[in-house]
Simulated scan of single mutants.
Amino acid sequence: MTQHVELNGVIDTTHLGMRLDQALADLFPDYSRSRIKEWILAGKVTLDGETVTKPREKVLVHQQVAIQATLEEEVSSRPQEIDLDIVYEDEHILVINKPADLVVHPGAGNADGTILNALLFHCPEIANVPRAGIVHRLDKDTTGLMVVAKTVPAQTHLVAQLQAREITREYEAIAHGTLTAGGTVDANIGRHPQKRTHMAVTEIGKPAVTHYRIAEKFRAHTRLRLRLETGRTHQIRVHMAHIKHPLVGDPLYQGRPRPTKGASEELQQVLKGFRRQALHAVKLELAHPVTSEWMQWHAPVPQDMVKLTEALRRDTAERGMDY
Score class of each variant (00 low, 15 high):
20 L>E: 03
218 F>M: 03
15 H>K: 12
272 K>Q: 14
267 L>A: 03
298 H>Q: 14
105 H>Q: 13
244 K>Y: 11
158 L>R: 08
259 P>W: 13
34 S>K: 13
169 R>V: 08
235 Q>A: 06
310 E>W: 06
181 A>V: 11
139 D>Q: 09
47 L>S: 04
80 Q>W: 02
311 A>P: 01
44 K>A: 13
122 H>M: 05
54 K>Y: 09
139 D>C: 07
82 I>K: 05
7 L>H: 05
34 S>F: 04
184 T>Y: 09
308 L>G: 02
233 T>F: 06
262 G>Y: 09
53 T>W: 00
263 A>I: 06
208 A>F: 01
171 Y>S: 06
206 K>W: 01
170 E>H: 02
276 R>N: 12
13 T>Y: 11
94 L>F: 07
40 I>K: 01
51 T>A: 14
181 A>R: 15
237 R>E: 09
294 W>R: 15
89 E>T: 07
130 P>H: 06
59 V>K: 00
318 E>L: 15
99 P>K: 07
115 I>W: 00
15 H>I: 02
204 I>L: 12
298 H>N: 13
45 V>K: 02
268 Q>N: 14
96 I>E: 00
93 I>E: 00
250 D>E: 11
313 R>F: 07
185 V>G: 10
174 I>P: 00
54 K>D: 13
22 Q>I: 04
153 P>E: 04
245 H>T: 11
3 Q>R: 15
270 V>R: 04
8 N>E: 12
40 I>R: 00
300 P>G: 11
269 Q>G: 07
200 A>C: 14
61 V>K: 15
287 A>K: 12
318 E>D: 13
149 A>N: 02
288 H>M: 12
44 K>E: 13
146 M>F: 08
254 Q>W: 05
117 N>A: 04
6 E>P: 01
153 P>W: 05
77 S>K: 04
71 L>P: 01
198 H>G: 03
258 R>K: 14
293 E>M: 15
142 T>M: 07
245 H>V: 09
149 A>Y: 03
86 I>E: 03
210 T>S: 14
90 D>L: 12
301 V>Q: 11
275 R>L: 13
258 R>I: 11
139 D>L: 07
304 D>N: 07
189 I>L: 06
129 V>Q: 01
313 R>S: 07
91 E>W: 08
186 D>H: 13
217 K>D: 00
84 L>E: 03
55 P>K: 06
225 R>M: 11
272 K>A: 15
69 A>V: 05
244 K>P: 04
102 L>A: 08
